[in-house]
Amino acid sequence: MARLSVLIADGNPVIRAGLAAILGAAADIEVTAQAADGREALSLTRRHAPDVVLLDVRMPGVDGISALPHLVMLAPVLMVTYSREAEIVREALLLGAGGYLVHGEFTADELLRAVHDAPLGRPHFTPTAASALLTELRTSSHPQRDVAQSSERMHNSVVFGLSSREVEIMDLIASGMSNQQIAATCFISEKTVKNHINRIFAKLRSATRSEAIARWLGTARPGVTGHG
């Protein structure tokens, strides 16, 4: 019987080794590769085509959430992480994660079951992740607000004349990312990011990141500047 191939992506080598030891003890699982960040995880996933990817959220360089939408196009992804915030759990699932396990809340057997079930589309959640998701769904289920925010964003993109790539980069700026993080997330050079930002700032008539964010999020109206 063919063994299930797994790629482990975690910024902590001790965690990687621990997960590899648990998985390696199973006769029908093989750890084919290990990655220290999202960019390496994507490269190794393309090279090895694993059956399952175990992905941490917080890693140096390209983090797990940034790499997730690219990874799920290549293999089922199971989040295995210390990050337990409701927003992160929700975002990971919206981006395609097939389960969410928080360290300290699962046994070796539970991890193995989650790995076996991932390619079958059967999600697994540890208690904190399940309750965080439930809480997030209860508190953030406001369709009218979501539609209003989407409408505002679309209105601003039209008003300011931003391209689809500039809209993507402006959203990343608004999320607090640095130029380096944006470059890694979009798989472009920092120089290209700077060129995009210069054009975005010109279109938004903004001199700083905070001013551009304010205009983009609608807290400052187009046509009104602080310089008269």
Rank of each mutant, 00 (worst) to 15 (best):
M1L: 08
M1A: 07
S5K: 15
I8D: 01
R16N: 05
G18P: 00
I22R: 07
A26F: 01
A26T: 06
D28N: 10
I29F: 01
A36I: 05
E40V: 12
T45F: 02
R47E: 11
R47M: 08
H48F: 15
V57F: 09
V62M: 14
G64E: 10
A75C: 03
T81I: 15
S83N: 08
R84Q: 10
A86Y: 13
A86K: 13
E91K: 14
Y100V: 09
L101F: 00
E105V: 13
F106K: 02
F106G: 00
T107R: 08
T107W: 11
T107A: 02
D109V: 06
L111E: 04
L112Y: 07
R113D: 05
A118L: 08
P123L: 13
P127V: 15
A129P: 01
A129N: 05
A129R: 06
A130N: 06
A130V: 07
L134P: 00
T135P: 00
T139G: 06
R145V: 13
M154L: 15
M154V: 08
S157L: 09
V159F: 11
E166A: 10
I169W: 02
I173Y: 01
S175R: 10
Q180M: 02
K194W: 08
I197L: 14
I200L: 11
I200K: 14
I200W: 12
A207T: 12
R215G: 03
T219L: 11
T219W: 07
T219H: 13
A220Y: 01
G223F: 05
T225N: 13
T225V: 15
G226E: 14
H227Q: 11
